[in-house]
């Protein structure tokens, strides 16, 4: 077992082909795959980083983007500490799908977390900002504000722009939130992973109330 203080689960969602997997791989492995096959179901990656001299482990779940896979991926929302909703700044279509994704987040993540008096960290990311844009920055910012996103950022997995920063900020927010509510203690029970749809709300959220 590694020595870490916090383990946070982050789930990436968003339309197919917006670059979720590339974003994760850029962050976790420092590479940009030229050709990244479609994610079927879910993929999983891990990355540790230091936040204020505290070792934090990020467990990143990368999900399939196609709408029909939501019934599988939704089960991952529930135990997530952070949901990163990704769109493609080059694709208006991917931006137009965001409201539907937000409804999903509210339905599947909101309810589970509301019971603990705390919302999941919602992050909006406009990827592929190295390309010409179809979605203006201020529109996206407005959308993030209106839909109560905790964080909004434009990134480029290709040019590694803002990727490290994105996850670092997420880690920092999660750490600070956790320290506020728990006085700095975090149970190891968080490593127990249960995503089965039929399971009770994940025990990792019980730990928030500890």
């Amino acid at each position: 077992m590694e020595d870490y203080k916090y383990l946070f689960k982050i789930v990436l969602i968003g339309n197919a082909g917006v670059g979720k997997t590339c974003l994760v791989r850029r962050f976790a492995q420092g590479v940009f795959p030229n050709v990244q096959g479609a994610t079927i179901g879910v993929d999983f990656m891990i990355k540790s980083l230091m936040v204020n001299d505290v070792k934090v482990k990020l467990q990143i779940w990368d999900t399939a983007g196609q709408e029909r896979f939501r019934s599988i991926t939704q089960s991952y929302y529930r135990s997530a500490h952070c949901l990163i909703l990704v769109y493609d700044v080059f694709s208006q279509c991917s931006f137009d799908s965001l409201p539907q994704w937000c409804r999903d987040i509210d339905q599947y993540a909101g309810a589970a977390i509301a019971g603990n008096g705390r919302n999941v960290l919602k992050v909006l990311v406009g990827n592929k900002c190295d390309k010409d844009r179809e979605v203006p920055l201020h529109i996206a910012e407005q959308f993030a504000h209106n839909n109560n996103f905790d964080l909004f950022m434009e990134t480029s997995a290709l040019e590694a722009e803002n990727v490290e920063k994105l996850f670092r900020e997420i880690a920092e927010i999660l750490v600070s939130r956790n320290q506020e509510s728990n006085g700095g203690t975090m149970s190891r029970s968080i490593t127990s992973n249960s995503f089965n749809q039929s399971s009770k709300p994940s025990n990792c959220f019980n730990c928030f109330s500890n």
């Binding site: 079927i40 179901g41 879910v42 999983f44 599988i72 490593t191 992973n193 249960s194 089965n196």
Partner: peptide, 20 residues
């Protein structure tokens, strides 16, 4: 014990007949 469930690794096995 480790909390590993089939849907975490077997989705693409089943949906693509191991072809992915």
């Amino acid at each position: 014990a480790s909390g590993i469930e089939a849907h975490m690794y077997a989705s693409q096995w089943f949906l693509t007949l191991f072809s992915a």
